[in-house]
Design a binder for these strands. Structure first.
Lengths: 214, 214
DNA sequence: CATAACTTGCACACCGACGTGCAACTTAGT
DNA sequence: ACTAAGTTGCACGTCGGTGTGCAAGTTATG
């Protein structure tokens, strides 16, 4: 008895949920490649017909919104567990975590370029941004991060630098090892550390290296 | 007598050339804002009707290609005159020059996102990329630039970092002063200098500060 | 195995944008 | 003032994509 209200109704089929997932996955891939991929293309990728997309989503827009929320959730979850008394280490750590979520990051970055969704993505991603802002502010205050750029601006620059690496990584396929290292170096460099300092910091904090899990 | 071949033909009207310019300018603005602005919108911006666009360009594509070539020309010209025995200074200098060409940079960056034009933009911009590559390689060799990232990759990262600042600058309008400073700091930070080193380098090289001309 | 849940294919209307032909108009140059 | 260069508006066909209705299938599940 699934519920009181839908008495006579049968439970939804399990494979429907799977197809919905397949659609989201296909859409993520297609939209990351080209932000205005057609429903036709997406459905085909998911192994469905265009017609049956409408059995899962009211329209194109709802599909994309679902995608945004899904990506952002993953994204924010990743950022939530990041902390360290040294702000620069925390930033590097955030970088490596982002590397694991690279697919989501790239997708959101692409979607956010299209006019109607900019705001929506910004809202969905607000938590990560907030966290990043905190870390930068703290670092600027205690001297672990540069203080020649206003913290809010610096936070944006670090964000952009990280995204740039992640996007770049897609073109020339880097292995996990190098990708994570690059994100950290880009973040730390933008944060004001010299490349030797950044290297030393990574070497001194093994938790930055052994993130092979997951 | 304009030429021998077009004997009976009258010289083209001067205002036609002006309108062509107006179209390009309007298109640059419109496409930078939204990379799939309609010809209708562009023409209106330029004070013309959609119909007469076809008097200047065979089709939408040719308009965009003209735009790419025009932007890239400006862009490459800017990069050509950049050099300095210290590679990191040269990079910073390139940064400030790019700041002056910010409009073109942003436009090309946007257009390059659209599938059919990626390659074309890459070709058009090849000279700047080449120059950047040289500088990075030289800097890595003589120790003025970080050597923990392969030079070709580092060149891409620096490029992305600079573009990120330029794009970011559009949102929150920065004055000339701060914009140029930010581009330089982002470039130098990515190149491996600490923020204090970057500050010192800028202070020590007045040509990086007095670029108010043009 | 009965049946609701789901998928499919096709038809259709709709929309925005592109590109073109043409006739009438306005305007710069000589 | 004559005239070619340039602009305009409108009509038209085309194309690709969206969203919907419906009838006929297929398949998971109770």
């Amino acid at each position: 008895m699934p519920s009181d209200t839908d008495a006579g109704r049968r439970a939804p089929r399990r494979d429907a949920a799977e197809n919905r997932e397949a659609l989201l996955t296909a859409a993520a891939a297609a939209l990351a490649a080209s932000p205005d991929a057609s429903l036709e293309a997406i459905a085909a990728d998911a192994g469905l017909s265009r017609r049956s997309v409408y059995g899962h989503f009211a329209n194109r827009d709802e599909l994309i919104l679902a995608l945004i929320d899904r990506g952002a959730a993953r994204f924010n979850a990743v950022a939530a567990g990041v902390d360290h008394h040294d702000a620069s280490v925390a930033l590097a750590l955030l970088g490596t975590r982002l590397w694991h979520a690279i697919v989501h990051v790239r997708l959101l970055a692409r979607i956010a370029l299209r006019e109607p969704y900019v705001e929506r993505v910004a809202d969905a991603v607000a938590p990560v941004r907030a966290r990043l802002g905190e870390l930068v502010a703290r670092g600027a205050a205690d001297g672990t991060v540069r203080s020649d750029i206003r913290p809010p601006v610096l936070a944006r620059l670090i964000e952009e630098a990280a995204i740039a690496v992640l996007v770049e990584a897609a073109a020339h396929e880097l292995d996990d090892e190098e990708g994570r290292r690059l994100v950290m170096l880009a973040v730390l460099g933008t944060a004001g550390l010299s490349w030797r300092e950044a290297g030393a910091l990574i070497a001194a904090n093994p938790e930055l290296s052994r993130e092979a899990s997951e």
